[in-house]
């Protein structure tokens, strides 16, 4: 397998960073790294995604770090992550300046209200879709609701919830004794 330079990684991730409108970044990453550039095998990508999803942080940025490191060491990891984030940050800067300037214009206020309302719908759909299997399983549903009530309604601090609820949830799924290592 041909190993790219940090510069090539930066260029590839920058392109994903600027074209990936509408989320679903993981699919863009897979297309580029596995299908297009042939830098990672499909299994390697899946392994990277698995780590990226389990650890804190954004899945897409974590995959960039892991893939970048694998392909070109520390410089590769930095090049990939920075390339992925920069285009969106610049575009958001422009949107932010426009927002600050026109935020009191009635047309803009109305359009932004619609945009925000639509974004809630998007997040709701993503949540329901990712959680489809969890919502119908009583034990998982219990943890969904417990977390929602503690964090969303009671404003219990997130670290507190993670330290209290996560060990319970993980213990419930603990491996059976005979296969434990």
């Amino acid at each position: 397998m041909n190993n790219p330079t940090p510069t090539a990684l930066f260029a590839a991730f920058f392109r994903i960073g600027i074209t990936s409108f509408g989320g679903g970044l993981v699919a863009y990453l897979r297309d580029e790294l596995v299908t297009h550039k042939n830098w990672l095998s499909s299994d390697e990508f899946l392994a990277a995604l698995e780590i990226g999803q389990t650890l804190p942080g954004l899945n897409s940025v974590n995959v960039a770090i892991i893939a970048g490191r694998k392909l070109a060491g520390p410089a590769g990891a930095i090049a990939a992550a920075v390339g992925l984030v920069i285009p969106g940050a610049v575009i958001l800067c422009v949107l932010g300046v426009l927002y600050a300037r026109f935020r009191n214009h009635p047309d803009v206020v109305a359009a932004l209200a619609g945009i925000a309302a639509a974004a809630v719908g998007l997040l709701l759909q993503v949540t329901l879709k990712i959680g489809a299997k969890q919502f119908v399983e009583p034990r998982a549903l219990f943890f969904i609701l417990l977390t929602f009530v503690l964090v969303g309604l009671c404003h219990v601090s997130l670290p507190v919830v993670l330290f209290l609820v996560a060990p319970m949830a993980i213990l419930l799924h603990r491996p059976p004794k005979e296969t434990a290592t």
Binding site: E50, Q53, T54, A113, A116, A117, A119, V120, L123, L124, V126, T127, I130, G131, Q134, F135, R139, A140, L141, F142, F143, I144, L145, L146, T147, F148, V151, G152, L153, L158, V161, L162, V165, A166, A169, I170, L171, L172, H173, R174, P175, P176, T179, A180, T181
Partner: peptide, 30 residues
């Protein structure tokens, strides 16, 4: 096997947090 336990255990918590996120933004936007 604990890797699997961590992933399975954390999944519903993540969904609960996302749901709380819908609520956090929705209470002003919706």
């Amino acid at each position: 096997p604990w890797r699997d336990a961590v992933q399975k255990g954390m999944a519903p918590i993540t969904i609960g947090l996302m749901l709380a996120g819908v609520y956090a933004v929705g209470k002003t936007a919706s």
